[in-house]
Design a protein around this nucleic acid. Sequence first.
DNA 1: TGTGAAATGATGCCAAT
DNA 2: ATTGGCATCATTTCACA
Lengths: 145, 145
Amino acid sequence: MDKLDAGIIDMLRLNARAGYGDIGDAVGLSASAVKRRVDRLVASGVIRSFTIQVDPAVDGMGTEAYVELFCRGNVAPHELKRILSAIPEVVDAGTVSGSADAVVHMRSRDIHSLEIALERLRTATNIDNTRSSIVLSRLIHRRYE
Amino acid sequence: MDKLDAGIIDMLRLNARAGYGDIGDAVGLSASAVKRRVDRLVASGVIRSFTIQVDPAVDGMGTEAYVELFCRGNVAPHELKRILSAIPEVVDAGTVSGSADAVVHMRSRDIHSLEIALERLRTATNIDNTRSSIVLSRLIHRRYE
DNA sequence: TGTGAAATGATGCCAAT
DNA sequence: ATTGGCATCATTTCACA
């Protein structure tokens, strides 16, 4: 991961379909050298995948919520992970510092299916209670991940 | 957005560098028909961009926080968007229901640069105060977006 | 790493549905 | 309005220096 790799990654983040030649022009390498580096970045797991960002509204997944999770007693992170993995509406989650034990980002087709998913979460073992914030309007969506 | 478009989007989500011919084989179209549809999906904004998912740890962006934003008086969503857009550490944000005005997901290189970004957020015009939850361990990372 | 050749894929046009 | 096939052009990919 040197400066050249970082440059290649920046280019691919902006346009994952950029040609090797174009990337090479930008970072100062030949097309084949860029290809070799990209292949290596993929093989080593630095580049997880090539994807697209789809408008969630069009995709029919326009309803979102941020949910704070409060657990009963001490719950191990891998236990939380097990619970959350079973709910497909959970797109992102992490244990956090502060009063809550975890923050969960949920995305669903509509309010109704979000409510059902929330109910599943709320009734899971060791979950004490939840505090939901329904997203009213999306402001930022920088998916560099 | 018919069934064919949905199939094309599914393929591109799995591999944004898939060839038009390969996509066509999967959904039952010729390469040129797939290209036309992809071009249209991009032009109409359904496909927002072609990107890569990078391992945040390797990328040196392993420190995250969820931040609740409380504003002074009524702040228009587009005003919040303007403020948040200026902070690159903000990867995701939305106005929400409940006591907070917005929830912001931030990602940074380390605690120190996260702190600096938080300070910039906290001192922005019309921001009353913030409530941060630093992510201790990432549980879920379903980045279909 | 770069160069150059061969294979592969992208792109635009046209006739047909 | 949208498709498949084809011709052309660009890019990827690989062997070798």
